[in-house]
């Protein structure tokens, strides 16, 4: 999956540069996050502002990252959700699991 990552102190900002997150690319995304966890990173912000479409596989990859970050006493936070993407979190009740912010700055300040 095409990502742009930036480290801000101990936080890794991951900007997803794909219009779709689905079963075709979400497995790779999980592996990319696992590589970061293996490096000891456990505070992640996922910027979804470029993502127009997410399916259950994409949501599953984010849940995987969330669980891995939590298990390492870190956290995975989301920001920049387009309305249709936000509706997917509500449809699957995952808005009750994730911390969701409007902007990267807000997500960063919450750590």
């Amino acid at each position: 999956m095409q990502l742009k990552t930036e480290e801000i102190e101990d936080i890794v900002l991951i900007e997803i540069q794909e219009e779709r997150m689905d079963a075709h690319n979400s497995g790779t995304f999980k592996e990319q996050m696992l590589a970061l966890f293996d490096e000891g990173k456990c505070k992640l912000i996922i910027d979804l502002s470029a993502v127009r479409f997410v399916d259950s596989s994409g949501l599953g990859a984010l849940v995987s990252g969330f669980k891995n970050a939590s298990a390492r006493e870190g956290s995975l936070k989301l920001c920049g959700l387009q309305p249709q993407v936000r509706s997917m979190f509500e449809l699957t009740r995952l808005h009750r699991v994730f911390e969701i912010f409007v902007s990267v700055d807000e997500a960063q300040e919450s750590f």
Binding site: S56, S57, G60, A61, V63, F66, T92, R93
Partner: peptide
């Protein structure tokens, strides 16, 4: 469980 990674497709 809310944090299961799979199984949401048919529900959707």
């Amino acid at each position: 469980c809310e944090t299961d990674e799979c199984g949401r497709g048919i529900h959707i």
